[in-house]
């Protein structure tokens, strides 16, 4: 899930001042931002209180089911059309994807982020999140015993450890076991020790050019036309 962090409230107030907003609508998300405790019902309520105490009017709130889903969010915001129409600005407590979805769904109103998007996180347990995948576009977990060196080695080395490893510990985050030591040990325990001369080759970053885009509909359409043409 996407881990988000609260933004400095002063920055949010500054944003509102830039458009002279007095009335504000707040959007949260039932998915990641709820699990991250940054943009669920609770946090949306807290922000509403914070703003009310500072003299703002909160015209309404909505914790959308999946805020980054454009069609869903449009429908949900339509139910708040009146509250939105009286709002001078919208604050969105979601990841950047959700903020942009709301901005597209309500293009006439200034939309401001209430959170910073941090990383794609594993939920270790409630309230404890760790980054294990950077969505690099070219997975090496098949070679590294299910431990990602791109993400969990601070230097992102594919072939490690670096010269700073000592007693199996990471040089940069000294309280952690070195990723490459973990990989080596797990491969060994599974009888998969890497063969000689098998350094992992350099990554291909061309598979991760931004902005990413997948269009299954277009793919299916192309496949349908192709098979139709073959007949």
């Amino acid at each position: 899930m996407i881990i988000t962090r609260p933004r400095d409230p002063a920055r949010i107030v500054e944003n509102l001042e830039t458009v002279g907003a007095r009335s504000v609508f707040i959007v949260g998300c039932q998915q990641c931002a709820t699990v991250a405790h940054t943009g669920g019902e609770v946090e949306v309520g807290e922000l509403a209180r914070f703003l009310t105490e500072r003299g703002y009017e909160v015209s309404g709130t909505e914790v959308s089911e999946v805020t980054c889903h454009l069609a869903h969010t449009r429908v949900e915001l339509r139910r708040h059309a009146e509250e939105l129409s009286t709002a001078d600005a919208v604050i969105v407590l979601t990841c950047g994807a959700g903020v942009q979805t709301v901005a597209d769904a309500a293009p006439e109103t200034p939309v401001f982020p209430g959170l910073d998007s941090a990383f794609l996180g594993n939920v270790i347990r409630n309230g404890v999140f760790e980054e294990r995948c950077q969505m690099c576009g070219q997975c090496v977990l098949d070679l590294t015993a299910g431990i990602c060196p791109v993400t969990t080695c601070p230097k992102g080395l594919l072939n490690g450890p670096c010269g700073g490893m000592w007693d199996g510990k990471c040089e940069v985050m000294t309280d952690r076991e070195c990723t490459h030591v973990r990989i080596h040990n797990r491969l060994k325990a599974q009888g998969r020790a890497r063969s000689q001369g098998s350094s992992i080759p350099a990554k291909d970053y061309s598979v991760k050019l931004k902005p990413g885009s997948v269009n299954l509909r277009a793919q299916r359409e192309r496949a349908r036309r192709k098979s139709g043409g073959d007949r």
Binding site: K155, G156, L157, L158, N159, G160, S199, A202, K203
Partner: peptide, 10 residues
């Protein structure tokens, strides 16, 4: 930003 596009072996 630490680049580390390649590692030393590469």
């Amino acid at each position: 930003k630490g680049v580390f596009d390649l590692d030393s072996t590469q």
